[in-house]
Design a protein around this nucleic acid. Structure first.
Length: 600
RNA sequence: GCGCCUGUAGCUCAGCUGGAUAGAGCAACUGCCUUCUAAGCAGUGGGUCAGGAGUUCGAAUCUCUUCAGGCGCGCCA
């Protein structure tokens, strides 16, 4: 009796880089070869399956598909890898969708598909169109992504832009891989930063001059704009500047602003009105900036909705009492502390201060409890890299709240430096104004901005060259890729003008009478695997580099062949193949939130 | 001091869970437009993958270590 074929689910096989239906079939043939001809034991087969990879070759000289299975199996079965691969190749050659298979190098098996099987990818791409690349290789998860979450105390700057582009892109990519994605902005609308914003506006309302503004206040032009807006609604401010600044200590900037806040709160009836107006104006501007950047959040979660500690039924009180009940939060020196030893943080952290006010951390714990209660399988937090010291304590809190901390995935985003004329663009000026995300989008456009933000792994420093993003040569990869797309669009328009409609098959290629598109077809077949890998690793830049190489293959082909002067049949086949290529370029760009260009 | 990240061609960077001769662009040199977009293509030169040790059939990739650089270590957010 033959050993029963051991089937691994795709999830178990997720170590395999390239997911492609052809590869799945080949892996099954490989497995049965080892079962039927090598009498491999089930346990050994399982080990083998976890370790070997079958992938699309990077180069047609190695055939279409390659597997390292024999080299892995050689170790397990104590056999010669080259001999194994010769036998496996001979075995695989018998199947009709495989044209030939051969042993190569130290024991690889290189497979050349039949023409029909080789064309599979462009047939699928032409059928699925804008859905080509979408896949369900992994089982569906409900994922929440929290990103941007900048304090609503001023316009978004270029640092926020990177987190925005990144969070939005991984959302699109995960969604394309079959997950349910929920994108959220956490608004810190309670707490000291907002008080400082309010105080800053009040000081402007009290007619303070630039040089009178306290060190810790916000001084940007937008503060004046908010004050003007407030005034235009005929609200006259009720304390004078002298009154506010009278007897305020000048030695400590932090103390100074706190005293000012106290004084205005006590002396002005307009405090809460100014606060409300300021917050809403700033928040609206942030929303507008994000919208212009093609970044959309499904939800805006307000810190204030977590309630206050004085209310026992509030989310924040509930979170604190839950931690106390679990024995992870304890009182010491009048403050409430969280025991963070479960995550090996350097020290325990304060949740509620001596004076009874909750820390930012306490709100964040309550917010994470709320996320958990909403039933997500995975929480992705996109944070600025400067917050990395914060990860352990939030993990400890999640652990304490009875949630698996493995499900929290913090992605750090490093700062981006802007360069113009080879020099660093200054982020802030003395007046408090700075180069904002909106400025960047206005200068180079949202698509080029998104592209360059995503062009490097998020957790690494990025030098963002504004001149490059505007350049009109090959060095500007953004246009290089767009140019490939536009060229295909233009070819299609010309073809349709002459023939009425786009072709629906590639006969000349399938019958092997025309093979110059092979390289492009080969690249097309890699796309779904790239999308999957990008989702698995949460790295959008993998798509960018793939698209760059893809565009290169296309431009090269385009230059060597004058497509529209080929025979009707050849042109038909080429155009069919190029439609698949256009789809790959467009779909790849859209996963990054970038609109492909039709005409340049 | 502790923690995280980085070190690949002159410059800017790719290199996926270890795989077959280490890649691309720029810069240098050389070719290609009376024909579909030259924002393009083709070619030449250029590398002890920071140093050392280990694991392995096989290491830029994994482990340890040394050196160099960046960032973070508040009852701030």
């Amino acid at each position: 009796m033959k050993a029963r074929r051991l089937k691994l689910t795709l999830e178990q096989r997720s170590t395999q880089a390239e997911h492609n239906y052809m590869i799945k079939d080949i892996n099954e043939l490989i497995d049965s070869f080892f079962i039927d001809f090598c009498s491999i034991e089930p346990k050994m087969l399982e080990t083998l399956q976890k370790k070997y990879t079958t992938s699309i070759t990077d180069d047609l000289s190695k055939g279409h598909i390659t597997s390292n299975v024999c080299m892995i199996a050689a170790g397990i079965l104590k056999k010669n890898p080259a001999e194994l691969s010769k036998n496996l190749a001979a075995n695989l050659s018998k199947f009709s969708f495989i044209e030939s298979a051969e042993s190569a190098g130290p024991g690889f098996v290189n497979i050349r598909l039949s023409r029909q099987a080789f064309l599979n990818s462009i047939n699928i791409a032409n059928m699925e169109l804008e859905n080509y690349g979408r896949n369900s290789f992994d089982s569906k998860k409900k994922i929440q992504i929290e990103f941007v979450s900048a304090n609503p105390t001023g316009p978004l700057h270029v640092g926020h832009g990177r987190g925005a582009a990144y969070g939005d892109a991984i959302g699109r990519i995960l969604e394309a891989c079959g997950h349910e994605v929920h994108k959220e902005y956490y608004v810190n609308d309670a707490g000291r930063q907002i008080d400082i914003l309010t105080a800053s506006v009040c000081l402007r309302l009290a007619d303070l001059e630039d040089n009178q503004m306290p060190e810790s206040s916000y001084k940007g032009g937008y503060i004046k704009d908010i004050a003007d807006d407030f005034r235009s609604k005929s609200h006259d401010f009720d304390i004078s500047g002298e009154e506010i600044l009278n007897a305020i200590p000048l030695d400590d900037a932090e103390k100074q602003i706190d005293e000012i806040i106290k004084k205005i709160k006590a002396g002005s009836s307009l405090w809460s009105k100014v606060k409300k107006t300021s917050l809403s104006i700033v928040l609206d501007s942030i929303k507008e900036d994000l919208q212009n950047f093609n970044v959309l959040h499904d939800d805006w979660y307000f810190e204030s909705s977590l309630g206050s500690l004085s209310d026992e039924s509030s989310s924040i009180s509930q979170a604190m009492s839950k931690l106390e009940k679990e024995g992870l939060a304890y009182k010491e020196n009048g403050a409430l502390w969280l025991d963070t030893s479960s995550s090996k943080d350097d020290k325990n952290r304060v949740l509620i201060r001596e004076d009874g006010r909750p820390t930012y951390f306490a709100s964040d714990v309550a917010y994470h409890k709320n996320k958990i209660d909403r039933g997500f399988d995975e929480l992705i937090n996109v944070w600025g890299a400067d917050h990395h010291g914060y990860i352990k304590r939030i993990e400890a809190s999640i652990d304490g709240l009875g949630f698996d901390k493995e499900k929290l995935n913090v992605q750090l985003v490093q700062f981006a430096n802007l360069f113009r004329d080879g020099k660093k663009v200054k982020m802030s000026t003395r007046s408090g104004d700075f180069y904002t995300l909106a400025n960047l989008v206005g200068e180079i456009g949202k698509d080029a901005a998104r592209f360059y933000y995503l062009s490097k792994q998020a957790d690494q420093h990025l030098d963002f060259d504004i001149d490059l993003a505007k350049a009109d040569n090959k060095e500007n990869i953004f246009y290089y890729i767009q140019y490939a797309h536009a060229r295909i669009c233009s070819l299609q328009a010309k073809y349709i003008e002459k023939n009425g409609a786009l072709p629906i098959s590639a006969e000349q290629i399938e019958t092997n009478k025309y093979a110059k598109c092979d390289r492009i077809i080969h690249e097309v077949s890699k796309f779904p695997g790239v999308v999957h890998r990008s989702a698995k690793s949460l790295q959008p830049h993998l798509i960018i580099y793939f698209l760059k190489d893809f565009a290169q293959s296309f431009h090269s082909f385009y230059n060597d062949n004058h497509i529209l002067s080929e025979s009707d049949q050849n042109a038909q086949s080429i155009l069919f193949c190029l439609n698949a290529s256009k789809q790959v370029l467009a779909n790849g760009l859209r996963l990054l939130g970038i609109e492909p260009i039709q005409k340049m």
